[in-house]
């Protein structure tokens, strides 16, 4: 071993080398940390901007600007059954828009939630790993399809080739070109990946011991899935449902293209309906000048939409947190 001999002897450094000195490196550390903090706080600034925007444009105006709810009373907004900001006799009742939103999100939920959950059960309880590796990316692609494409699909495929042959030709129900049903169906398809992946996570976090206990009692696969695993993951599934419905409520382009722009207080899904989101797109199409009441109504409707989706998201987080506490 001649290793030590080939290396030169070391010189001892003075101990004073430990003292902090002002150096570029040290100054840089501080500056960088500051910059990164600014980055991280930008998300808080975004929220503050959203809140500030709704407060100043919808609740109380500033700088001589009157806000939406200063011109339209909250009571009228919530109880009036007509929404006609573009007509000469203006009505600002959110109910028709709310109705459109609820009907479409409801249809979407009726389709998307059970299918998404069943798919989650299949992936977590039945499917072999190989099949999962094929299906998961396909579902990701499904989730990545832009909503304008779904809207197009509803308008040019589902309405003329699915709804009209079944409901109009067979059952004699009139189906409008734009209708809530086609929009609801595509919204349902859109939320399948959300429900599926979140529910699957919930099902997978149920401990394997519970399943084994179920099988040991002579349960079939079906009994274990539906009577042991699903109840155990219940709150996680509920959270995924809430998030999916919240997404369905906020969905814009598919609904706008599929269901049209006719505010209507009705439960007939084969007529054209306008949702809150579709109204906001519609109002912007006409290039509404700032300062008019139609322009301000954007903020009134937007505020309502923001509060509803925020409420559902917070509720979903609460439920999810409770679920995690049980299993982690």
């Amino acid at each position: 071993m001649s290793v030590a001999q080939t290396t030169p002897p070391l010189t001892l450094k003075p101990a004073s080398g430990l003292i902090k000195k002002f150096s570029l490196t040290r100054a840089k550390e501080g500056v960088i940390k500051g910059l990164l903090f600014v980055c991280a706080s930008l998300s808080l600034v975004t929220t503050l901007m959203i809140v500030w925007m709704f407060l100043t444009e919808a609740v109380f105006g500033i700088g001589g600007n009157t806000a939406f709810f200063q011109e339209v009373s909250l009571l009228d907004f919530l109880t009036d059954t007509q929404w006609s900001p573009q007509f000469s006799e203006k009505h600002f009742g959110i109910l028709p828009l709310l109705c459109g939103t609820v009907v479409i999100a409801g249809i979407g939920g009726l389709i998307g939630l059970p299918i998404g959950l069943a798919a989650a059960i299949y992936l977590s309880e039945y499917a072999k790993p190989k099949l999962r590796r094929i299906i998961k990316p396909l579902l990701e692609i499904l989730a990545g399809v832009p909503s304008v494409v779904y809207g197009y699909f509803a308008l040019v495929f589902i309405t003329p080739y699915v709804l009209r042959p079944i409901f109009q030709s067979l059952l004699g129900i009139d189906v409008d070109v734009f209708n809530a049903m086609s929009a609801g169906i595509v919204v349902g398809v859109m939320i399948i990946p959300t429900v599926c992946s979140l529910s699957e996570d919930a099902l997978r976090s149920v401990p394997g011991g519970l399943r084994e206990a179920g099988y040991a009692l002579g349960s079939t696969n079906f009994d274990v899935s539906l009577k042991v695993v699903v109840p155990a993951a219940f709150s996680g599934i509920v959270a995924s449902f809430l998030l999916a419905i919240s997404r369905a409520i906020g969905e814009t382009m598919a609904v706008c293209i599929g269901a049209g722009l006719m505010p209507r207080l009705s439960l007939n899904p084969f007529r054209s309906m306008q949702t809150m989101t579709a109204y906001m797109v519609n109002a912007s199409l006409g290039d509404t000048p700032a300062g008019t009441i139609e322009y301000k109504s954007l903020y009134g409707v937007g505020f309502m939409l923001f509060l509803i989706t925020l409420g559902m998201n917070i509720l979903a987080q609460r439920v999810m947190k409770r679920f995690r506490e049980v299993y982690e």
Partner: peptide, 19 residues
Amino acid sequence: IQLNLSNLAGVPSIVYALL
């Protein structure tokens, strides 16, 4: 910040449009 992030992720895109 973390809570705010998960809430922002759930804000509908049309609200961002308004913003």
